[in-house]
Design a protein around this nucleic acid. Sequence first.
DNA 1: CTGAAAGCGCTTACAG
DNA 2: CTGAAAGCGCTTACAG
Lengths: 333, 333
Amino acid sequence: MTRKTSLKDIANKIGVSASLVSYVLNGKDKENRVSEETATKIRKAAKELNYIPNLSARSLKTNKSHTIGLIVADISNPFFSNLARTIEDEAYAHNYTVIFGSSDENEDKFKRVLDFLSTRQVDGFIIASPEESRETVSKLKESNIPLVLIDRYFNDLETNSVTVDNFQASFDATTYLLNKGHQRIGGIMYDSTLLHYQDRSNGYLEALKQAGIVDADKFLRKVNHQSLQSEIKTEVQKLIFDDQVTAIYFSTNTIATEGLRQIRNFGKKIPDEIDVVAFDENVIYQFLEEPIPFIRQPIKEMGQEAVRILIDQIEQKDLEIKNRLLKASLEIN
Amino acid sequence: MTRKTSLKDIANKIGVSASLVSYVLNGKDKENRVSEETATKIRKAAKELNYIPNLSARSLKTNKSHTIGLIVADISNPFFSNLARTIEDEAYAHNYTVIFGSSDENEDKFKRVLDFLSTRQVDGFIIASPEESRETVSKLKESNIPLVLIDRYFNDLETNSVTVDNFQASFDATTYLLNKGHQRIGGIMYDSTLLHYQDRSNGYLEALKQAGIVDADKFLRKVNHQSLQSEIKTEVQKLIFDDQVTAIYFSTNTIATEGLRQIRNFGKKIPDEIDVVAFDENVIYQFLEEPIPFIRQPIKEMGQEAVRILIDQIEQKDLEIKNRLLKASLEIN
DNA sequence: CTGAAAGCGCTTACAG
DNA sequence: CTGAAAGCGCTTACAG
């Protein structure tokens, strides 16, 4: 295992100083008035010696790692893995690399992942913050490391964020059902303090209220993350048989998948007997008797925006705090 | 933005040398006979000053980054995102961090990602190599950086690998259909030079041959990655209506999803009119009239093994080349 | 038990 | 147009 070639090796080979090699290989030959001849020789030698810069050394000197830390709830969740993919692409395009960690929606784990990645000299973070993580994020912000929240956000915490208008999307989804004539519309949501989930509840409730429905929350059901399957089963059963709803709004991908299974499990036809709208796209929708309407989040745009905002701040091109609120659209087949 | 505290800050604060601080904070105080008293003072000061080691500096010195480069076909593909998750967990458990890139099954992109990550001082790679990448992987191997292939492999290229017995799994799946009395069994595969896909074809063919079926390959269909949807539609149609098959084996997740859609699209009942087995698990199977049998890959084990082998080699604990062939089991509900 | 020193491979202000 | 030098923050062999 031979040592990798360094700047100095190149410098020695052609008899110039390391400074010149550094300037040339970093494209700063013009501004440092390196002669074209020397520059050419350097580039040639670099190629011949198969030079790969040592980024640890560069990092140490410049205090920049060109690495973004991405923390999501779970990289194996399709929403987040798709987000990760667009973030990867955008980061690579800017010559940044992505290092990731999953918080499992758990504040403790989140803190550990954050600490771990902080050690790694990341230049900035893109974070989908879990419940109860306000303090941690607030501290992170105070440490002045660039930071963009994605998907989730906090009130009264001035940070960059890229989110979707969950309220409006839920409002639209519910309105769609109302417009089809439904009056008894169930809504299944996460029992969570995360604001973006609350926005979904509120959008649903507001649509019902504006339609003049009294006790708008009487068919709103909250389920827990940990006991999702059993709770959804119970709630779907109650909504259908006790509450006699004619439609249900499922406020997340996971809830929809389980909810749809249960509706069929209870022998009800979708959409004829129970009409349905879901948040997020899912392949399974194509395996129902009829494809159902769903809310599509602009995942690509979210990832791209987050990376752009972050890199602008890392490179100090734009330090203004940005809050991008993107639109999620209801897709009706 | 104040400068982060360094080893020297701690050393100065309590009036010792940086060496001692380094020893203590790296848990080498015993072996370097640092006095318990000094050690305690150092640990206390480190905590007070909120010391975070600069890993770039450490990397530069030790030539180790404690970072693993993961290259898959596409991080947003469920198989790979699940794999990524187990790799993340196992890496974190060993104090390693994961940096990733997607090759899009494209050799050029693969090379670019590899070059890009190589620059980042990764200690080793876990790679799901795309078609035509033999040369690139071979060169990488010669550069002596630790490397584990996952999911895919090459003949006559001695590298660590963690793969699944695709031949046996396909054989089992096909045998399952044969045992149910099917004689005309279609098989839809990728048209690919990747060996693990060919193993799947071969397992299917071998099962048919052993069952005494002549022209075993007459219902074997190969489809292209890029025009998957239309080709599968055509092939499913031909298999059902021209070839009168009574069962189909779908050799990947993606092929199965589209294939199942098409069977239903052509009005055939699963499994009564067309029986089916698929490679890989998928939520959609629960949305069919009856859940179908499928081959489950031991994703967690694959990820864990790959990380363990890699780290053993990085840390030179075990330099022997390892080829782990794991079993994928047929799940029948 | 402790400290001084070298050096990892870069970048960059400075001098000429 | 070019070179010498300092220094980023660590680790570690060596001396005492």
